[in-house]
């Protein structure tokens, strides 16, 4: 159940967008498709929705073979990055569209639209045109519109990509809470790892048309299957012959089972964080190592730029990959 994707391939001319994709997306969960722009994740989402056709392979949605079905018969809710608001219709009309197409009785449409507008906190804007709404409000309207048809799956294509940072963070939390209320199988595409880690139940990392790894946010962050996943999910630095997260490095002022030693050559403070660059003495690994620690830790160690320090992986640092 959920969404079953088997052997999907897609080329645009000689550009390979998707290659042999096999993926099961469980029912009722919130799954993120994460990867760099142009990696194929949006294409996969559009193939699930029927907005794009795959060259080969099958798509099953909640037990129903949807491979040959056009978009309008798949009963999926789709939310676009740039809202795709129907500009000539009021908010209310936008949300009612799918129900009117399904020829639902007027009273029922009215009732359902009111419910949905309440759900997305747009009750007082029902008679406005999309151009009179902010970006965040438009996207909430688009979400209500997609939910109106009681879709078997909800698909969101970079839904917060066009919004500014603050609104994006609010909407992200709000989407999580909404999903906890509505429980519809949801797939959303993003290139923002923080967004994916924060919101989703499970993550699918896609790069260059292939699936790199599937798992829970914890799995992926702590046990990345590849260098790509490791570096895509957060900052990475090289300590000796290992790739490691900069905040998983222990820094001391005396030699103690250290992997590397060197001088602090750069010191940047961002809020409560101190970001250091340590240039190792090691001739084999001369590239600067990034280290992140809190201001409290730095003060306790009495660190200054130019100091000699020793570095080693922190105990329990899991997200490290030997090269």
């Amino acid at each position: 159940m959920g969404i079953e994707i088997r052997g999907v391939n897609k080329n645009f001319g000689d550009f390979v967008a998707l290659q042999d994709i096999d993926l099961s997306i469980p029912s009722g969960q919130l799954t993120a498709l994460l990867g760099p722009s142009g990696g194929g994740k949006s294409t996969l989402l559009r193939i699930i929705a029927g907005l794009e056709s795959s060259d080969s392979g099958t798509i099953e949605i909640e037990g129903l073979d949807a491979t040959g079905l056009p978009a309008q018969k798949r009963n999926v809710g789709f939310v676009f990055q740039h809202y795709a608001a129907f500009k000539h219709m009021t908010v209310e009309k936008n949300v009612a569209f799918g129900l009117e197409i399904r020829k639902k009785p007027k009273a029922e449409v009215k009732k359902r639209v009111a419910e949905l507008l309440k759900l997305v906190h747009l009750e007082q804007f029902s008679h406005r045109l999309p151009s009179q709404l902010s970006g965040g409000q438009r996207q909430r309207m688009a979400l209500a519109r997609a939910l109106a048809i009681e879709p078997s799956v909800l698909l969101l294509d970079e839904p917060f990509g066009a919004l500014d940072a603050k609104v994006r963070k609010e909407l992200r939390e709000w989407l999580r809470r909404l999903h906890d209320e509505v429980h519809v199988t949801t797939v959303f595409v993003t290139h923002d790892q923080e967004e994916a880690l924060e919101v989703s139940d499970s993550l699918v990392v896609i790069n260059e048309g292939r699936i790199e790894q599937i798992g829970t946010p914890d799995d992926l962050y702590d046990r990345p299957a590849s260098e790509f996943v490791l570096s895509f999910l957060g900052p990475v630095t090289r300590l000796g012959d290992k790739l490691i997260r900069p905040h998983d490095i222990d820094i001391t002022r005396y030699e103690h089972a250290a992997t590397a030693s060197g001088r602090i050559t750069r010191w940047t403070r961002v809020g409560f964080e101190i970001r250091l660059e340590v240039t190792p003495d090691d001739v084999l690994h001369p590239d600067p190592v990034q280290v992140i620690l809190t201001r409290t830790e730095a003060t306790a160690l009495q660190l200054h730029e130019g100091d000699m320090v020793w570095l080693r992986p922190r105990a329990g640092a899991e997200a490290a990959l030997a090269r």
Partner: peptide, 9 residues
């Protein structure tokens, strides 16, 4: 496309 995904032919 949005109209299509909402079921419009």
């Amino acid at each position: 496309q949005a109209a299509k995904s909402l079921g419009a032919g």
